[in-house]
Amino acid sequence: MECSEFKDQLQSMLDGQLSAAERSRMENHQQQCPRCAAELGWMQQFYGAIEQERRVTPSTELTDRILDQWALNRLKGRERNLVFGRVERLFIAASILIAILGGVKIGDLIHKMETKDRVPMELALLDDLAMEDIGALIEN
């Protein structure tokens, strides 16, 4: 067996996918080639370390920690809703008040503008009377 073939088959060997005959050829090569044996050893160490990590378990208090955090989050959420709800209600009330006051003010301004441009009726009547008097004087 050549080193390149050993390398190609290495992963299959680690995955346990080789037949007994193929495995035996690999083992023979490994005994004759220290470099390939070192490479196999290195790969086995890597996968062994993964296996070791797989066996690490979480601490026993983790469940309680998660439940405590969940309860805390819910509490914070409720507080936030409560505060936000109050602020929201105040904001709506303030908006309505501003709208009413604004409406009144605008109405007042429009009214003032209209009365400013209009000629008072009394003055208009006086003017008509004056014109009639002037007309009478001219005729006489």
């Binding site: 990590e53 378990t57 989050n73």
Partner: peptide, 26 residues
């Protein structure tokens, strides 16, 4: 355990994996 192992597979540190497990359940 399933969630913790998955997180461990990405972060390789128990403390980080536990924090992530907590985050996942929340």
């Amino acid at each position: 355990d399933k969630v913790f192992r998955t997180c461990m597979g990405f972060v390789h540190q128990r403390e980080d994996a536990e924090d992530l497990t907590q985050e996942v359940f929340i």
